[in-house]
């Protein structure tokens, strides 16, 4: 059986393009409905990455930008989990990239002017390929909350941005991971662009005490689910004959 098209994306599970409480979306949201397109080869295929593309250290944000013998300020954490598809099958060898603020809530970006200091030992990005079981992990420090200009006094909950590929361009996804117990999650206008509470819950990583490293790092578990695929129904004429 040849795997075929990806399952239809559940657009009611994702945030709508327009949410007036997230002000920037007001002028950046298309007014017209997207045109529904059944997958062709252009959507079923997507970029393939290998171990030659990245460095084995790229998933260690504690070390990948630190001066020799130093490390960033902050709570040492491990973020780990699996990339699965909607059929609960692992997605192996797929690229996962992350970026985040430092422990003070400041990004290393020329456009971020928040008054919290840059950490000289923290870059704030990492990347890794999932293994054959779809498993990945990063070592980093817990990011801080920070204020942003939406309503006058909005604060982002601590979060890590994630970018994931899957095997086809139709699976391409960027999202954000939040931390269990953070009181800022409930009032965040970006979190609340997602209409369904259960969907929001899918973005909150639980503390995973079984995966902590005693006397070293605390762990959070974050599984990522990409679109699943049909196994049949599409093999006819896919190659144009």
């Amino acid at each position: 059986m040849k795997p075929g098209e990806f399952y239809q994306r559940d657009r009611r599970w994702h945030p709508p393009a327009l949410d007036r409480d997230y002000k920037t979306s007001v002028t950046r949201s298309p007014h017209y409905a997207p045109i529904s397109l059944e997958n062709s080869l252009s959507e079923i295929t997507g970029p393939v990455f290998g171990h030659g593309d990245i460095d084995p250290m790229d998933n260690d944000l504690i070390l990948n930008y630190a001066k020799p013998g130093e490390s960033p300020i902050g709570e040492r954490i491990i973020v780990h989990g699996r990339v699965l598809d909607e059929n609960a099958r692992p997605v192996p060898n797929t690229l996962v990239e992350i970026w985040q603020a430092n422990a003070g809530g400041r990004y290393r970006h020329k456009k971020d002017t928040y008054l919290a200091p840059i950490d000289p030992n923290f870059g704030g990005c990492g990347r890794v390929l999932t293994d054959e079981d779809g498993y990945y992990f990063f070592r980093t420090v817990k990011p801080g909350a920070y204020p942003w200009r939406n309503w006058v006094n909005d604060w982002r909950p601590a979060h890590i941005h994630l970018s994931v590929f899957g095997s086809g361009f139709a699976q391409r996804l960027i999202t954000q991971m939040y931390f269990e117990g953070d009181p800022l999650i409930e009032t965040c206008p970006i979190v609340n662009t997602i209409p369904d509470k259960a969907a929001i819950g899918q973005l909150i990583a639980p503390l995973d005490r079984n995966a902590t490293i005693p006397l070293d790092s605390i762990a959070y578990k974050f599984d990522i689910v990409l679109r699943g695929r049909r196994s049949t129904l599409f093999e006819n004429r896919l190659e144009g004959n």
Binding site: R9, H14, S25, I190
Partner: peptide, 25 residues
């Protein structure tokens, strides 16, 4: 079936993760 992980905006600092040179480092 599992549900697809919902999307969130890439935000203004997407470059840090995906094009750090453009972010300035």
């Amino acid at each position: 079936y599992l549900k697809e992980t919902p999307s969130q905006t890439a935000g203004p600092y997407v470059h840090i993760g995906l094009a750090p040179g453009a972010a300035g480092f």
